[in-house]
């Protein structure tokens, strides 16, 4: 038995020990609070400031470009504002309808009586992830476009396609979220001997609020992104400018469209996050 503790020759070299050794963690008191406050400021103002800077940068950059007649014609305020309005309208409509359909259905499908079908629906939702958004959108659009009974032009087929595309993910998220809530509720409620209705009203519904809010955010972000493809189906939106820039080989147009879409998506995500945070019951 060797009792010497000096390092023998060994196969691996090891990092100097001092860093590991006298490692002192940071002070957790006053400095920590200050840092937390600074962090929350960064969180609340960081994104809008960043987006404002990006827009300013875009504006200044396009301003320095010598725009030819095509570019000048595409990049009018009227044009861009109109597309932005279209983009937002498509996003809001499709979000509204998908929530109207998917959330109640999600709640219904997680009730005890229907619960055994839940894995099937969640499985379908998972499998749906394998279908590419572009293909699904196009197929849905084709379906509605070729139904003689339905209006084939205007925003209707586009909104329906967007709703159809985001339906499964939202349904799946709602169900998974509620399932987690239910598991918790089942223990707590039963433990206190509450009646079923009382459990639903005083525990389950408040606990479901964050699930629904998360659904709102997911749906908004999903739809603001997919609405960028609405131009393919005559639905307009800012995707139009991107595509025009690409087809006409006009970089300022391409960049303007792309940046506007990106800024809009990040802004929607940021606002939805704020709403989610404000409306979530404290302590959850």
């Amino acid at each position: 038995m060797s009792t010497s503790l000096t390092p023998p020759d060994s196969s691996d070299r090891v990092v100097p020990t001092d860093a590991e050794r006298r490692q002192t963690a940071r002070d957790e008191d006053a400095a920590g609070v200050r840092r937390a406050r600074r962090a929350s400021l960064v969180r609340y103002l960081g994104m809008p400031l960043f987006l404002a800077l990006v827009l300013l940068g875009l504006f200044l950059w396009v301003g320095t470009q010598e725009l030819d007649s095509i570019e000048a014609r595409t990049l009018t305020a009227e044009n861009l504002l109109g597309q932005t309005r279209q983009h937002i309208t498509l996003t809001l409509y499709s979000t509204f309808f998908v929530l109207l359909l998917a959330v109640p259905l999600g709640i219904l499908a997680t009730r005890p009586r229907l619960r055994r079908y839940a894995p099937v629906i969640i499985g379908l939702g998972n499998a749906g992830q394998a279908i590419p958004s572009l293909g699904l959108l196009a197929l849905l659009f084709y379906l509605f476009r070729t139904q003689p009974a339905l209006p084939s032009t205007g925003p209707f087929p586009v909104v329906v396609s967007l709703v159809g595309y985001s339906f499964l993910p939202i349904l799946r998220n709602t169900m998974v979220g509620l399932d987690q809530v239910d598991r918790f509720v089942l223990e707590a409620g039963k433990g206190m001997g509450m009646s079923n209705r009382k459990v639903l009203r005083s525990i389950e519904l408040p606990l479901a609020v964050p699930v629904v809010l998360a659904g709102v955010r997911t749906a908004l972000v999903l739809n603001v992104g997919t609405a960028a493809l609405a131009f393919l189906f005559g639905g307009g939106g800012l995707g139009e400018t991107i595509f025009a820039g690409f087809q006409l080989r006009r970089t300022p147009v391409l960049i303007t469209g792309a940046i506007l879409v990106a800024v809009l998506a990040l802004l929607v995500d940021y606002l939805a996050g704020l709403i989610e945070e404000k409306l979530t019951p404290k302590g959850l």
């Binding site: 590419p132 958004s133 572009l134 293909g135 196009a138 659009f141 084709y142 476009r145 084939s152 690409f246």
Partner: peptide, 27 residues
């Protein structure tokens, strides 16, 4: 795999090209 299909809209390769061809010809 899903997002790669969208690359075809701006000149990328892949199966998105076939979908894009279809979209341009609807209905």
């Amino acid at each position: 795999i899903g997002i790669a299909a969208i690359a075809a809209l701006v000149g990328g390769p892949g199966l998105g090209q076939e979908i894009f061809t279809g979209i341009r010809r609807i209905p």
